[in-house]
Amino acid sequence: MKQCLITLALVLTFSWGVQGQKKAFEPGELWLDTDGTHINAHGGGLLYDQGYYYWYGEHKDHNSLAQVGVNVYRSKDLYTWEKKGVALAVSEDPDSEITSGCVMERPKVIYNEKTDKYVMWFHLELKGMGYAAAKTGVAISDTPVGPFEYIRSYNPNKGKWPMNFNDDWKKDYVENPSLEWWSDPWYKEVKEGLFVKRDFNKGQMARDMTLFVDDDNKAYHIYSSEENLTLHIAELADDYLSFTGKYITLAPAGHNEAPTMFKRNGSYYMITSGCTGWDPNAARSFKSESIWGPWEPLGNPCIGEGADLTFNSQSTYVLKVEGVEDRYIFMADRWNPKNHIDGRYVWLPIQWDGDRPILEWKGRWNLED
């Protein structure tokens, strides 16, 4: 027994350091904060601000409904995280769009230099409506830890056509066309804007999402739309609180969700997933020389054992490590639908094969590897 305890102590010291400070990433393992509690920030994203990283994510209980809101954690080294509280809390007002029991997913926060505000966007589903609302919500704060003030929700780009939409496709929408889903005629209609036209007057569907701020401080909202069949890339207004009406469709009928976006050497990249509910699937990747496309599919970025299921995880964000050239971290969730609070995190370094991102499983790694 003494030998077992000594071995366990050595393992804990190796992983966490002599004073409890974590020294490496261990994908899929329990990740404790400085209070010794498993980090509860699912579907999250990171913000770097004045020497600290801030990790925003969904507070999960035993199901997927929002009971608390969006948690925020802070770190200097990306290994050790201190919980700073609830950045955006659910409302006690039963008439609020973010009342307890709604769905608040994939929160992302960006900083606006012009307004000196921190802006959070997230996928919002209204209480009691399942996933029918397909909205995106926005909140604002004076500090990165909040509290964030909820402003409103959108079905984006109401009354606007995508920039890459053919004029010939802007014909009247035929409601409930007698087309079998996944048939060749149906694929053709989706690619020619079947669902864009359906939702033109009320605004587009917006589910899984991420945010991206370019070098010129223009911000973009990337979301899964059209019944999760097509990705949209939409430009945000200068204050990051609304849409300008400029947007494109990406991979129509490709059935992508969980989008991430990042930039390397002047090129834009996306890593996404397929749509299989809580079950993992093979990741996808794309590259473009312009954020407005055209976007080139690069295939599954994962290699090795577990690649076909993205190592039992689903993408949520890609972080560019501050102060280190060409260092990117792929962030993903390993969902646990039987007990959502026990969802784990899979962070992996992005490697490169020319201009193609590569993900390979590493059970333990650090930034110096």
Rank of each mutant, 00 (worst) to 15 (best):
M1R: 13
A9V: 05
L12H: 13
V18P: 05
G20N: 07
K23Y: 00
H38M: 09
N40G: 06
A41P: 01
G44N: 05
G44V: 13
G51K: 02
Y56D: 01
N63W: 05
N71L: 05
K76W: 04
W81R: 11
K83G: 13
K83S: 13
G85D: 02
G101L: 10
G101M: 07
C102Q: 09
V103R: 15
P107K: 02
N112V: 03
L126A: 04
A133K: 10
T136V: 11
D142E: 14
Y150E: 04
Y150V: 07
I151F: 03
N155I: 13
M163V: 07
W182M: 13
Y187C: 07
K197P: 05
R207I: 00
M209K: 06
T210E: 03
S225I: 02
L229A: 12
T230E: 14
H232Q: 12
L236M: 02
T244S: 04
Y247G: 03
G254I: 05
G254S: 00
H255T: 14
A258L: 03
T260P: 08
G266H: 10
S267T: 03
K287S: 14
K287Q: 15
I303Q: 03
A307M: 09
T310D: 09
T310A: 15
V318Q: 01
L319N: 01
E322N: 13
E325L: 01
D342H: 14
K362H: 15
L367I: 06
D369S: 15
